[in-house]
Design a binder for these strands. Sequence first.
DNA 1: TTCAATGTTTAGAC
DNA 2: GGTCTAAACATTGA
Length: 308
Amino acid sequence: MPELPEVETVVRELHLKLVGRTIRSVDVRAFKLVAVGPAGLGNKRTQSAAGAKAFSDALAGKQILSVKRRAKLLIFDLSGPYSLYVHLKMTGQFIFEDKALRAKTGSRYRILNKPTAPLVQLPGKHTHVIFQFKDGSTLYFNDLRKFAYMKVVKDVEVDQIKELQEYGPEPFDRAFTLDAFVTAVKKRTKSPIKLVLMDPKVVVGIGNIYSDEILFQARVRPDRLVGRMQDTEFRAIYDAIRPVLRKGIQAKGSSVGDFVRTDGAWGGMGKYHFVYGRKKQHCKVCDTMIESKKMGGRTTSFCPHCQR
DNA sequence: TTCAATGTTTAGAC
DNA sequence: GGTCTAAACATTGA
């Protein structure tokens, strides 16, 4: 699902709903998605029933103390010396159901984010991990493409998660200053600015949707090479990053693709997109036709008039 | 039937 | 070493 605003939305909702609950059991239906430490092997897949059992055993009986986000990872702090971290990749999603929601929905949800998507009875074909809590509530983990992963590690290893160690600052962190941003960006003189914005070594949390939206706000074409840009343009981009992400968080994520919130509701950011997903539509600012091109294997949209 | 889809890593080419 | 592209992961739907 998700870039920073979507992950942040899920983390906040899960934090409110899960803290204090105790896991009774964990049912793993897709072995490859889960693993138990050490940290830094996020993509290594267990692919065995034994690994899945170790995962379930490590979680059973643990209470959830907090749910946090680092970059695009969700990190669950558990009672005892263990944490669980989860990457949703493209299509991972959590649906949390307590007794009241179950009574209301009958466990049927639209897990694809489209008005035409059918209601799916959970657990469904794409439900790969099911957390049962002692109070009778349930957390379903669905992932259509099975790219996501989750891993149990010791608390002390959370800081050693390889994916995080190699990453740059959080956009809302104090360390993410204009100077730090410009310095990191200028190391990539021959790269188009969009690809640099999406590079987590520069700043974490920005993917295809938000890089397009940020560059629109900054009025910079995504294919501009860093080495041929002006300092005022770096500043405009830096100044656009936090407001655009904040707006995404306030809208509770983009209504794009498979993103659904933890109760099956949709995020509201989609209607605010200026360029993403609007190829061949008219620019909301100047009415020019939005163009698109492939960059780094990703569809990139921009307004050729507003962005220079 | 072909193509594209929110992410990330890795291999290979230049 | 930097940086690009394509491929890999798996599935759906236009």
